[in-house]
Design a protein around this nucleic acid. Structure first.
Lengths: 227, 227
DNA sequence: TTCTTTCTTAATGGAATTTTAACAGTTTCC
DNA sequence: GGAAACTGTTAAAATTCCATTAAGAAAGAA
């Protein structure tokens, strides 16, 4: 049995939240909700949901702004809900990083089907494998191997390695890493990075020699080397 | 320049095909079309398009059947077009592997935006590359090469070279360089420039001879030569 | 609860980078 | 030609940043 998917609902109308919660929980989702944009961004960082349903008409922040803030550090699938059926709104939301756009009132079955599309990737073994040199990561089962030997990583260590692997070859800035691993409240804590880079390098070490695949770019960030 | 994305249109109505072709080619897509399900499946296999637009109302095979046959071997993003706005149709198409579902008549801008969502991953290879003589800079991964040999630069050195490269061929004044590398508080510190130009010329040197590509314009600034 | 694992924080030494300074070489222009 | 202003080179000082270790706090499991 696979662990249940988590959905984050960001909507200020209580009855919509209730409705969505019932519908989603009926499908086996674990549901978290937020009634404002500010809370939504925070929750997105905290709960690491598998999909986000975002209402554009929020009281405090523009829905588009919420979308952009989450997209600064996360690529979680986001489905937009909106009372407005305006084409321009759709285009700007989709181009700002949304993955789908559904107008209210919506049909439950269609919404669920669209959510299944968005979460299909997570379950599928799509690009579920990363390989570079002696390092192998199987994203679908969260396993990491060095020379076919499994390495046990803590959640934080795994997320950090994942972020590097998704950008293999590229420099990932301190800010990007902190955002995607520890969330927006930790972008200044570069000490976390140093500690965890040491952990990773130690755990990924093979035999006597330490792992060379993570390159430090002083003052900028880190880079996972292609080999 | 990134290579154009290819879109495959599977639709039996000639005027829809024409319309889509015009709209898509206007966006820079390379367009291939098929007027039946059989042809569509064949073309999908042959042309390896980056996205498929599939009409559900085809004369020979059920649209859903076409979808399933393509999904047997391909994960290419598929957007369904349909005159029927029926919820059950949407759900079954999405669950059969479609990535999005748009009802006719459709809005061009929205359709294009939804296609951009589907092709975002593919299209996101930002090949920001600078090349001049033996010097090559890959901005997306922050790497500098001379004769295919990577050169390790410090952040300051890199930013300085970047500024020169963005204005290749043109003289960049002392003030401009200081401003963009060291910030507004350092516009008088032209000593910094001298020191770092030496660093750059040394590091970019190839074999015995020093790097000739940075030209001094006495009393004015520096210029990266086009070669 | 108690035990275990994981995360956070602090302290240290060492490494890399930036800044400063001194001097040598060049160009400009009278 | 020669003085003044500018540029190039080098090296050491100062600063900032990084790796590592360890210990206490928090979270989770038994």
């Amino acid at each position: 049995m696979t662990s249940p998917l988590t959905a984050l609902i960001i909507d200020d109308e209580p009855q919509i939240r209730r409705l969505l919660r019932v519908v989603l929980e009926g499908e086996g989702y674990r549901v978290i909700d937020a009634d404002s944009g500010t809370m939504g961004v925070q929750q997105a960082a905290a709960c690491r949901s598998d999909v986000i349903i975002l209402d554009l008409g929020l009281p405090d922040i523009e829905g588009l702004e919420v979308l952009k803030r989450i997209r600064e550090w996360s690529r979680v699938p986001i489905l937009i809900l909106s009372v407005r059926d305006d084409e321009e709104d759709k285009v700007s939301a989709l181009d700002a990083g949304a993955d789908d756009y559904v107008s209210k009132p919506f049909n439950n079955a269609e919404l669920l089907a669209r959510l299944r599309v968005l979460t299909r990737r997570v379950h599928s073994k799509d690009d579920a494998l990363f390989e570079s040199g002696s390092l192998r990561i199987d994203f679908s089962v969260r396993q990491v191997f060095v020379d076919n030997q499994e390495i046990a990583l803590t959640p934080t260590e795994y997320t950090l390695l994942l972020t590097l692997a998704r950008n293999v070859g590229k420099v990932v800035t301190h800010r990007q890493l902190l955002l995607s691993v520890w969330g927006p409240n930790a972008v200044e804590q570069s000490q976390y990075l140093r500690v965890y880079m040491t952990h990773l390098r130690t755990k990924l070490a093979n035999g006597g020699k330490t792992f060379e695949g993570i390159q430090t770019e002083t003052r900028i960030g880190y880079r996972l080397l292609v080999k």
